[in-house]
Nucleic acid binder design. Structure first.
Lengths: 194, 194
DNA sequence: GGCTTCATGTTAGTCACTAACATTTCTGAA
DNA sequence: TTCAGAAATGTTAGTGACTAACATGAAGCC
């Protein structure tokens, strides 16, 4: 995502301008009154647009916060790990590598969004649902390289859970870099790097 | 839960009789037409009752499947592990112990419900949301005994994710006991039992 | 058998979406 | 510049998950 700290970005087409307006209004309202108390219609109105238009840009209200492009990167990073590693370590190390590649300037925008998610139970559920797709792709990759499907599923799920838990902790405080936070989180479940 | 394989149980009061009717109708309909395609009103009608009555028994449609009483057991089991264990192992071993205590006769009913959840993305999200409460309790316990909050959060989240992944795998096949499935799942993330 | 309480029904409304169709706004080529 | 086709938006109407307020019926207790 090309957002800057306030959620806006340099608009090219009209579509992108509306998108930016919606995201800006959404983040503001969510932070001020909470996610549940904010209505899709209200966000749309604030952005000078109709409710219908909101749903043309986001399939669900939650997608305003959860639409991220990191998943393909993650999947690729896991795939790039040596096939000889056992599934669990492959997943851990892949996730580690993927997030190290994240440009630091994007961190404030991510923190803002994740913080809202971390504080809203229904959004945590949505986050997990969206992570589910990433999970499936990682499992596919591991299984294609010879892992047992059930072990692969457990590995992917627990590593992603650790990642998300680390993300939440990082977002709730105001200090530290994302990369460090994720490294620390993965260290908890990955005692020995062999 | 005191349900038998078909989701029914010996009814005492009128309330329990309606509850049983709703659960029975719900499971049947979910299995036949899928969760999303089944309406709360339809379940209610099938159970010979009004939509309003449905929501008097279950706060949400998902609760018909996710209302389980296992969480307190789980929390207690984690608490029972020696305080000297590091948080991650305490969580792993606690979860292991908790599920070993499950009476086998309940397995078919659990399998039926979990199978529906496993096949419905939105329910996987709901499951995670409901697991979130368990997670918080486990974290509280670990932190009260001296663990770092962030490590405790990661430990609880990833162990529960492994547990749920194991549950899903088990429910999707027709063989094996729940206890074994969960042990296998936890083995994936817990290499060395020290 | 009357009285209280609990389970249920009724009605009306909010909010997240979806579908079908109409209208406006861009944009690129003549 | 102009004008057609595409893209973005608006309008209307509806479904389904819930919620609140109020009314009614049936259970259980004395």
């Amino acid at each position: 995502m090309t957002t800057s700290p306030d959620g806006s970005f340099r608009p090219r087409s009209k579509r992108e301008r509306t998108l930016a307006a919606l995201i800006g209004a959404g983040l503001d309202l969510f932070e001020r009154q909470g996610y549940e108390a904010t209505t899709a219609a209200q966000i749309a109105r604030t952005a000078g647009v109709t409710e219908m238009t909101f749903f043309r840009h986001f399939p669900t209200k939650a997608h305003l916060l959860l639409d991220d492009p990191y998943d393909p990167v993650l999947i690729a990073a896991v795939a790039a790990r040596p096939r000889a590693e056992r599934p669990f370590l492959r997943a851990v190390n892949g996730v580690r590598a993927a997030w190290r590649a994240l440009p630091e300037p994007e961190e404030p925008a991510i923190r803002r969004r994740v913080r809202i998610v971390a504080r809203t139970p229904s959004l945590r559920g949505e986050m997990w649902r969206s992570t589910g797709e990433t999970e499936r792709s990682i499992v596919e990759q591991l299984v294609a390289d010879g892992a047992a499907p059930e072990a692969a599923r457990v590995a992917a799920a627990s590593v992603l859970a650790a990642l998300v838990a680390g993300l939440y902790s990082w977002a709730e405080r105001d200090t530290g870099t994302l990369t460090d936070a994720i490294d620390d989180a993965l260290d908890v479940i990955d005692v020995r790097h062999d």
